[in-house]
Design a protein around this nucleic acid. Structure first.
Lengths: 202, 202
DNA sequence: AAGTGTTTCAACCATTTGGTTGAATTTTTT
DNA sequence: AAAAAATTCAACCAAATGGTTGAAACACTT
């Protein structure tokens, strides 16, 4: 039982590594087996097919991102704190899972049908508390009128884009690994300021 | 000779459609042939291999995006006008090439080596005129101090992210095709305002 | 009309790939 | 110690896939 769980986990982690790096179409079962240091037979012993293994990896990926995001914006924190928390969450998560943002984004485009149901099952919608918070700021004249979905898109776009387009950013700005990380740390501080100044009333 | 060019172009356009939609690994030569309404033999008659065909499609994709972007920010327009032009360029280009932003971004991550040289050959770096423009605004106290690369990243991130993550945006915000397009048109107007308010001096 | 390049078609090939099988070995449970 | 489960290995299979070939039909140029 101890070994059993270990192996299943080894396989799963290897699958995460390979799928997130290569995508579904680019991933090879043999590479997953090698990465897990087991043989191909074991893959099918624990997970019946590539498809099934992929689904679990993908869903785990979505679960690692979405609940946290919606957890933060559904909380009772101030808007300011929410923005900072979301930005920090994306940046922290990215160090541990460099390919995750790109992976989830891309595979979601490739197989939307399969996962829209799965997404609806989780509580994926802009929470009232978040929309209300923005409306209140607008009515108090402390914020320009902006649709909550656009406000959210600003935060996510500003944070995720440089992660999803890592190699593009590195190439255009001539950044090695270290320079790229500095670039992201620079952004981490800048984004909340930008977001709020950006919606000041004019 | 007339037919020759036509066929080569039919193949190329079909390859664009299929590669941009499915990615290199997901694309099938047979599907490209079907899309072009010719048979597989012709693909190899004009383009020797999948790899070669892909390279041309990818490079054409990069060329459709990068020179325009850098053309705009290298021009003699005001900062304000540049931002508006870039945002409009991304939004206009996207209607015609819905998969292009996602395609270029993703494939660049998958095969960075192959294309970094190609990118250097084009004049891909932040032009002095753009950096100077920002520096001047900062020194005049009309703008908060912000690294030019971050300023550029803001524009591109705000514009491209909802395109690259189309299905994610649609799912989270419950948008059908029409609602999604409205969402993007809403953004087209919002982004320049946000960008400039965001960097106002405090 | 002859010759050249283009296009089709169908068959073919080698390789890759996801998946299977079954026997042998090791580990865990009872 | 016996039974059950986990693991390995190597061989195997069928389907998919990128690519090739060669002959026949067609189009275009000269």
């Amino acid at each position: 039982m101890a070994l059993e769980k270990e192996t299943e986990e080894k396989i799963f982690k290897a699958a995460q590594t390979v799928f997130q790096k290569r995508g579904f179409d680019g991933a090879r079962m043999q590479e997953i087996a090698d990465e897990a240091e087991i043989n191909k037979s074991m893959l099918h012993y624990y997970y019946r097919s590539k498809d099934k293994l992929f689904q679990e990896v993908f869903q785990a990926g979505v679960k690692k991102v979405m609940p946290q995001l919606f957890g933060i914006i559904s909380s009772e924190l101030s808007l300011q704190e929410k923005v900072e928390k979301v930005v920090n969450f994306y940046h922290d998560m990215f160090w541990e899972n460099q390919h995750l943002p790109s992976f989830v984004t891309y595979e979601m485009n490739q197989h939307p049908e399969r996962f829209q149901e799965f997404m609806s099952n989780m509580n994926i919608k802009i929470p009232d508390v978040f929309a209300d918070q923005i409306r209140k700021e607008v009515e108090a004249g402390r914020m320009a009128d902006i649709p909550p979905r656009q406000f959210l898109m600003n935060i996510v776009g500003m944070s995720m884009m440089p992660m999803v387009a890592k190699k593009m950013v590195q190439t255009i700005f001539s950044l090695d690994e270290e320079g790229y990380f500095e670039f992201l740390e620079e952004r981490r501080k800048l984004i909340p300021i930008l977001i709020f100044k950006g919606v000041q009333p004019s």
